[in-house]
Design a protein around this nucleic acid. Sequence first.
DNA 1: CTTGCTTCTGTAGTTACTACAGGATGCATA
DNA 2: TATGCATCCTGTAGTAACTACAGAAGCAAG
Lengths: 129, 129
Amino acid sequence: MIAIGEASRLSGVSIETIRYYEREGIVSKAGRTASGRRAYSDTEISELRFIKRCRDLGFSIPDVVALRDLADAPNNSCKTVEGLGRKHLAEVRTKLKELRQLEKALSELVSNCANGKSDCPMLDALRAS
Amino acid sequence: MIAIGEASRLSGVSIETIRYYEREGIVSKAGRTASGRRAYSDTEISELRFIKRCRDLGFSIPDVVALRDLADAPNNSCKTVEGLGRKHLAEVRTKLKELRQLEKALSELVSNCANGKSDCPMLDALRAS
DNA sequence: CTTGCTTCTGTAGTTACTACAGGATGCATA
DNA sequence: TATGCATCCTGTAGTAACTACAGAAGCAAG
């Protein structure tokens, strides 16, 4: 049996976050030792790592839960998984587009600063009133 | 004098958010009509639009406040403004890089789904246990 | 005078954690 | 056996920047 600190190290999920997941019912309640400490099995570590991987990919907690439930479901789940993946990919691409525009606007704003003018072109642009 | 609804329309900042900004001291308290309703001047609308523009560029509220204070300061502010701009630009570029990697990983994951296999390659990849 | 839109205050909820405080337990060493 | 340090426990509150009500009151038109 694995204590929570070790579970954290093995999964990459912080101790506080593991307890948070349990409180919120995102993972089921861990077993306890005689003295009341949480004890984890290899399976539970795998589940935490699954969650970690999904979170790193930017999936929301509800999406991660859906994905995990699909992973346990018998079959026919692949289409649903693909759907979730594509939906999320579309969101990521939207965000990317926004960030690219933002990068462009910001870098233009900042490059104007380099001229050492007495007034501030960046502030003027932000004012644009 | 402009009522809050009109101020919202003119600035693009929602009514609730305008009140929130006032509560938090992000903008100074608006004047009131005899019956207690908020009344805005053109200057205040401009300030709201300045804030909106900065927020749309992804600046945090503290950064926006700093930027606005610099905009009101006498001079020597341009360098500070540029510093804030460059700092934020660096953050945006970091975020962009992360999102690009994420997009790559996700699109690979999802493209595997297209093969109509009986098991789910995306779930397998997420498991990777 | 009624109808419907706008505004008011105050409070609570959102997302996904993170950060304590204050106390108990486990283990290794002197 | 004592002690000291790491680890763990619960419970609560804080984070960023809003958003969403509820319930009451004001305003303008027909």
